[in-house]
C-alpha cells in the first residue's frame, strides 16, 4: 500500500514540474527564428510545397537518417531475437481459417492499399505524408494479407534485400549530396524543377520513396517474423 502512496507522491511532484512548464507556456504569436526562416525561403531553397517534408528530408535530413537506422536496428534485433529462440513449444497450432469475407475483402483491398501507400510516399513533398506514412500503409497492407490467409508467408529474403537496397541507395544519395550538393543529404543534386510538380524539390521524392520502401519492408519484416513464430510453433 505504501508503495502506491510513494508512486502517487512522485507523480504529483512530476505533475508540479509539468505545471511549471505549462505556466510558462504563453502561446507564441509569431513563428520563432528558425521556423520563420523555413517559412520564408523553405519553398525557394528546397522547392517542396510541403515544408514539413522539406525539413524532414533536407534541412534535418540527418535526423531522418537516424530515424531509418532506428527502425533498421529495431528490425534487426527483433529478427535475430525472435528467430533464434528454439525454446518455444513446437506443436502445430490448429490454424483457424479466416472467414470468407476476409479473403474476398483482402483480394480487393490489398492492391488499393499498396497503391495508396505508393501514392503517399511518392508525392510526399506535395501532399501531407511521406516515406514513413507510406511505408506504414504498405506494411499494414501486408499484415492484412497475412491475416487473410495465414498459411502463406512472406518471403523474408526478398524483403531484406529490398530493405538493404533502399537503405544503400538512401546513403548513396546522401553521399551524392555531399559531392554535388552543399553537404551530406543535400537535395540540390537534381534540379529543383517547377514548384508544385511531381519532379521537383531535387532528390526529395527519390529519398522519400526509398525511405517508404525501406520502412514498408522493415515493418512487414517485423510483422512477418511475429507471424512466423506463430506458424513455427
Amino acid at each position: 500500500m505504501y508503495k502506491k502512496l510513494l508512486v502517487f507522491a512522485t507523480i504529483f511532484i512530476l505533475a508540479g514540474i509539468f505545471l511549471k512548464l505549462y505556466q510558462n507556456f504563453d502561446g507564441s504569436k509569431t513563428l520563432n527564428k528558425t521556423a520563420s526562416y523555413y517559412a520564408k525561403n523553405g519553398a525557394s531553397e528546397v522547392g517542396s510545397t510541403n515544408i514539413v517534408t522539406a525539413i524532414v528530408v533536407t534541412y534535418r535530413g540527418f535526423d531522418t537518417l537516424g530515424e531509418v537506422t532506428i527502425l533498421f536496428v529495431a528490425a534487426a534485433i527483433i529478427g535475430f531475437f525472435l528467430k533464434t529462440n528454439a525454446k518455444g513449444t513446437n506443436r502445430i497450432r490448429n490454424l483457424r481459417f479466416s472467414s470468407e469475407i476476409m479473403i474476398t475483402a483482402s483480394k480487393i483491398l490489398m492492391p488499393i492499399m499498396f497503391l495508396i501507400g505508393a501514392y503517399v510516399f511518392v508525392n510526399g513533398h506535395l501532399s501531407p505524408g511521406g516515406g514513413f506514412q507510406g511505408g506504414a500503409i504498405i506494411a499494414s497492407g501486408v499484415a492484412f494479407f497475412l491475416l487473410a490467409n495465414p498459411t502463406l508467408s512472406v518471403n523474408h529474403k526478398v524483403l531484406s534485400v529490398l530493405e538493404s537496397t533502399s537503405g544503400l541507395i538512401f546513403v548513396l544519395l546522401g553521399i551524392a549530396g555531399l559531392i554535388y550538393g552543399g553537404g551530406f543529404l543535400d537535395n540540390r543534386v537534381l534540379p529543383l524543377g517547377k514548384f508544385g510538380t511531381l519532379f521537383s524539390a531535387g532528390i526529395i521524392p527519390l529519398v522519400y520513396s526509398f525511405i517508404g520502401l525501406k520502412v514498408g519492408a522493415e515493418l512487414s519484416n517485423i510483422i512477418s517474423s511475429l507471424q512466423q513464430i506463430q506458424k513455427e510453433e
Binding site: 505524408g129 511521406g130 514513413f132 506514412q133 506504414a136 499494414s140 517485423i222 510483422i223 511475429l226 513464430i229
Partner: peptide, 26 residues
C-alpha cells in the same frame, strides 16, 4: 498538422495495435 495526423493514424494506431495483438495472441 496533417502530416503528423497521417503518421499517427498509420503507425500509432494501426501498426502498434497490430503488433500488440500479435504478441497478445502469441
Amino acid at each position: 498538422a496533417p502530416d503528423v495526423a497521417l503518421t499517427e493514424a498509420a503507425i500509432g494506431s494501426g501498426l502498434t495495435t497490430l503488433i500488440f495483438l500479435f504478441i497478445l495472441n502469441k
